[in-house]
Amino acid sequence: MAQVEAELQPQAEAAPKPQGYWSGVLGRLAGDKVAMACLIVIALLILSAVFAPWLGLADPYRGSMIARLKPIGTEGHILGADEQGRDMLARLIYGGRLTLFIGLMPVVFAFFIGSALGIAAGYVGGLTNTIIMRVVDVFFAFPSVLLAIAISGALGAGITNSLVSLTIVFIPPVTRVAEAVTSGVRSLDYIDAARASGAGALTVIRVHVIGNVLSPIFVYATSLTSVCMILAAGLSFLGIGVRPPEPEWGLMLNTLRAAIYVDPWLAALPGVMIFATSLCLNLLSDGLRSAMNVRD
């Protein structure tokens, strides 16, 4: 009696080689041309920023009265020179260091803090959820630009303070997304099944929740990096972020503002960098979103 048909799938598809989830994601991402192009651009930006001192560039801090506002294409200054005669190419590349750092780190911090808060709120529910989410709602009442300006203004200018204020700005949206995704996963039967096998809350979260909520939160956070870069640049532009003479794209945009009637192309260069980087980050996060979709 106890014989079970060892049938199942008569057309016996050749068992696909079991592959990890992340290798699958990378494989699909590699097939996405737009995302790959963006990834290359961002990688180049980061690499050039990191290795700037070894690229044989001009000193980004040394000005020259003669070279002031040299246009793009001038010999010795391929991308021209700024209002103090500092080499634009060098300043743009060195500027990438700070800009990318302040653009990415707050999102990284916010990703960890917000995910933790959101997962806790979504999984535990009840009063914990109410408290966390109502506090988050308070932050949502302010536009993010205003909030960043207010906090930075209160803390004072400087790189650390910019990092802190931007992190605070991005924790609420990440928390909200994390909470929504976690509540969704929480109601699925496999969480019940895991609880029914006697696992405690922390085990269930570690094994079953995190893996399933982290990727949507991660994708969302990637899309925040472009906003964060623009905000960071904005803070510097307003003079409450990075202080001169540090090269930073937002700050450069601000100081070159006066030259916009003299040489608009030159003045627009830092803006172009901000635009291109945030566009690439956005497209990359789109690509990541579709690559992380397991079911097709």
């Binding site: 079991p18 099944a193 893996g211």
Partner: peptide, 8 residues
């Protein structure tokens, strides 16, 4: 729904 989609 009763199986974790990310787990073998």
């Amino acid at each position: 729904a009763s199986l974790n989609p990310r787990m073998t």
